[in-house]
Amino acid sequence: MTLPSLRALVALWLLALACLPLTAQAHKLRESGVSVAVDDSPLTVTPSRDWNRLDGNIGKHTERWTIDGAQLNDVTFYAGIEPGKPLVRERSKKREPLPKFSTATLLVEVPELLETTYRTYKNSGSFKVTTIEPGQFLGREAVHFTYEFVDQDELTRQGEARAAIIAGRLYMISFEAPRLHYFEAVIAQFRKLADSATLP
């Protein structure tokens, strides 16, 4: 066998290997009733049903959970975003900068921060914050808000989130699902999950 054809064979073999589903990348099960720390932070939650923690972070201090897949129901934790940092990882700091959480950010501005992040990060053409209410999260004063947006897949999704600013860091938990069926189906589970969140 000549050297070039051997090389081609190795390349093909590597490609085939890369395409195989790897068990090491599997998502983790979050079992009902077992308290877990989110992204190794002090924020802990106790789910009241089984959830899947998705592999792969969209940013520092974030974690995503789902039941049927992230496109159908997606819980995202933001466990202590530091001032000066964006909510999710920037694809390009220079060319596609994302809005940053800052020490001056007020609770009432957090929905706006999520909106501007989504409009840039997800190229969401339409995003509407529907309600903003005061509430409690992690035992502190917080903002509860709901929103609706159209993603690149042109499915209208509904979202609900709770956020609190504690010791200068932003803690937030959000739930998003297609408006049709999936939002209503899981929202009660999400609220239970959010209620169970604690921070020492």
């Binding site: 007020l106 609770l107 009432v108 929905p111 529907t130 309600t131 903003i132 209410e133 005061p134």
Partner: peptide, 16 residues
Amino acid sequence: APDARLIGMMIPNQGP
């Protein structure tokens, strides 16, 4: 306004 209650809390003597 959608955020009327939260804004209200930012003003003393206004209450939610």
